[in-house]
Each structure stands twice: as structure tokens, then as C-alpha cells.
């Protein structure tokens, strides 16, 4: 029996972050040039683009730090330029790009300062340090912190007061791979608690498997929004199939490959790579299977987000 969802017919909940025709001009420079963007509750959303694409400017407008030249941004239903935005700020955490903290304070004092501003009890500070793995350095001055430790302290600051929305600008700058893994694990935990996370990055390989949706930004415009899969399909980029064969079979296999609907064949020392359109992937693989025995291994390389990204931004 088909069940009818109780939500059927109702309108979707309003997006947590809604940008409408947002423009920011600095003289003749169009830093952000007509951005429309909806980010839903509980999403882990990535904003990617080259340096200077307009990500940080868009972020600062979302936080109400700079007013848009035109357009409107609403966070949790409240206009960022409006009077009521102070109350929203209490529920927002922000980690700026290349966060700068106060060298003369210890890690714990730093958090206590921001806790005071956010109206959060001091008792939350040691926990926040623990969460980012800085408990051992709580009494040390930030002056002595490494780049990665400062970044973690900045993240701990953003987490103070259990924010509902997190804005993280290039959050993994200066973190080593192990710390990056821990960082994303923390983000997944927060998402499970219903926190909406927006982060920017220019390291595409790092975020492509980790965000729910992403937007590609270039020269002040959002070029594409969607899941990684959707973007790949939308772009219809060709994929590569690597075939490993014994050197003695090289010529015969190449002859077979030449019959297939592929757009390029590259020979390497121990393998042959073929490029084919997405919709010919299965016919090609089936034809390769017929090589039977001569085929030692087969590997499909999907276009990376990088390819998608450069496809959109060029």
C-alpha cells in the first residue's frame, strides 16, 4: 500500500541561507556579480573557486560584515543588514581565512575572550580545546602556536556556543592530512546534530567526496550548484578506462580498442588508457571483457571535480 507522506503538499522549509541577486562592486571590480544561492538546513555545503573568485567576499556579506551593493541575503530568515541580525550572530560560528588571533593570549584565554563576546560560559572553553586536540596547549601563548594549531584554535572559537550555522573560510589551511581527516569527521558529527556548514576551498580533491552539495564560483558568479555526481553528469565529461595488459599482447589489444567508440587511446609502459564519452562507458567495458585472459586489470577513472571545476570556470 502506498503511503502518503504527511509533508506532501506542504511547502519546503525555508533555506537557512538565501542569497538573492547579490552584487558587490568595488569601483569597477565586480567581486560578486549577481549570486543566487539557497543552502538548506543541515547541509554540508562547499563553495569552491580560485583565489579572487569572490568566495570570501560572498562569505563576508553572508556574515553581515560588508553590505552588498545590491541584492539581499537572509540567514535563518533574517536579513543580514537588519536590526535583528545580532540575535542570529549568536547562533553563527565563523572561521575567517587565515585566521589571526591574539599572540599575547594563551589558547584558553583566547577562547574565553570570544566566549564572553558570544555570551557563552567559560566552562565550555576547555571542552572546545579538547574537541580540536589542543587541550595540551591550553596554557601556552598563541605566539608559540604553529600554523595548524592556530587554525584549530580558530575552529574551536567558531564552535563556541553550539552554533547552528558554521561559516568556514578555507578551514583546512595549514592542517596536515591527519588533521584534515579529523576535521571532516568533526564536521560530519556536527551535521548529524543538524548544524548547517558552509565551507570554502580551492583544494577540490579534498572536498569533493566530503560535501553534500557544492557551488562553483568564478569571477564573481556561481557557475554551477549541485552534488558532485550531478555536476559530473551535467558537464558530461569523458572518462578514462585504464587497461593493464601483458606487453606481448599490446598490439593485438590496441587493434581491438581501435574498433571501439573511444575518443583517444594512450599507450603507457604497462597499460593502455582509453577515453570515452559517459554514454559509451558500458559498451566499451563489455567489448574489453571479450578480450578475456589478455586483460590483466581494468580501472575506470571518473572525471574529478577538478575537471568539472575547470570545465565551468574556463
Amino acid at each position: 500500500m502506498a503511503s502518503i507522506s504527511p509533508d506532501a503538499g506542504k511547502t519546503a522549509p525555508p533555506p537557512v541561507i538565501a542569497a538573492r541577486q547579490v552584487v558587490k562592486h568595488y569601483g569597477r571590480v565586480h567581486a560578486v556579480d549577481g549570486v543566487d544561492l539557497d543552502i538548506e538546513h543541515g547541509e554540508l555545503f562547499g563553495l569552491i573557486g580560485h583565489n579572487g573568485a569572490g568566495k570570501s567576499t560572498l562569505f563576508k556579506m553572508m556574515l553581515g560584515l560588508i553590505p552588498p551593493t545590491s541584492g539581499e541575503i537572509r540567514i535563518a530568515g533574517t536579513a543580514v543588514t537588519g536590526k535583528g541580525f545580532r540575535a542570529v550572530r549568536r547562533r553563527v560560528g565563523y572561521l575567517p581565512e587565515n585566521v589571526v588571533l591574539y599572540d599575547n593570549l594563551t589558547g584558553l584565554e583566547t577562547l574565553q575572550f570570544f566566549a564572553q563576546l558570544k555570551g557563552v560560559a567559560y566552562s565550555a572553553c576547555p571542552n572546545a580545546l579538547e574537541r580540536v586536540g589542543l587541550a595540551h596547549a591550553a596554557k601556552r601563548r598563541v605566539r608559540e602556536y604553529s600554523k595548524g594549531m592556530r587554525q584549530r584554535l580558530g575552529f574551536a572559537q567558531a564552535l563556541l556556543g553550539k552554533p547552528q550555522i558554521l561559516f568556514l573560510d578555507e578551514p583546512t589551511n595549514g592542517l596536515d592530512p591527519e588533521a584534515i581527516r579529523e576535521f571532516y569527521a568533526t564536521l560530519r558529527g556536527l551535521r548529524a546534530e543538524g548544524v548547517t556548514v558552509v565551507l570554502t576551498s580551492h583544494i577540490l580533491s579534498e572536498i569533493q567526496e566530503r560535501v553534500d552539495r557544492l557551488a562553483i564560483m568564478a569571477t564573481g558568479k556561481i557557475r554551477a550548484v549541485g552534488t558532485v555526481q550531478a555536476l559530473r553528469e551535467e558537464m558530461d565529461l569523458p572518462l578514462w578506462i585504464d587497461v593493464r595488459i601483458a606487453p606481448s599482447d599490446f598490439d593485438s589489444v590496441r587493434a581491438v580498442l581501435g574498433q571501439l567508440p573511444v575518443s583517444a587511446i594512450e599507450a603507457h609502459d604497462d597499460r593502455v588508457s582509453v577515453r570515452c564519452a559517459r554514454d559509451t562507458k558500458m559498451p566499451v567495458i563489455e567489448a574489453l571483457a571479450a578480450l578475456d585472459g589478455r586483460l590483466l586489470d581494468l580501472h575506470v577513472r571518473e572525471p574529478s571535480l577538478e575537471d568539472v571545476f575547470f570545465g565551468f570556470s574556463d
Binding site: 556574515l63 585566521v99 570570544f114
Partner: peptide
């Protein structure tokens, strides 16, 4: 100039 102003202004403070 140090870059800490944005963080301060993102706090609930006018």
C-alpha cells in the same frame, strides 16, 4: 591590518 577585525565583527557586537 592584522586581519582580526572581521572575526571580531562577526561576533554579536555592534
Amino acid at each position: 591590518e592584522r586581519g582580526s577585525l572581521d572575526l571580531l565583527l562577526s561576533m554579536p557586537i555592534t
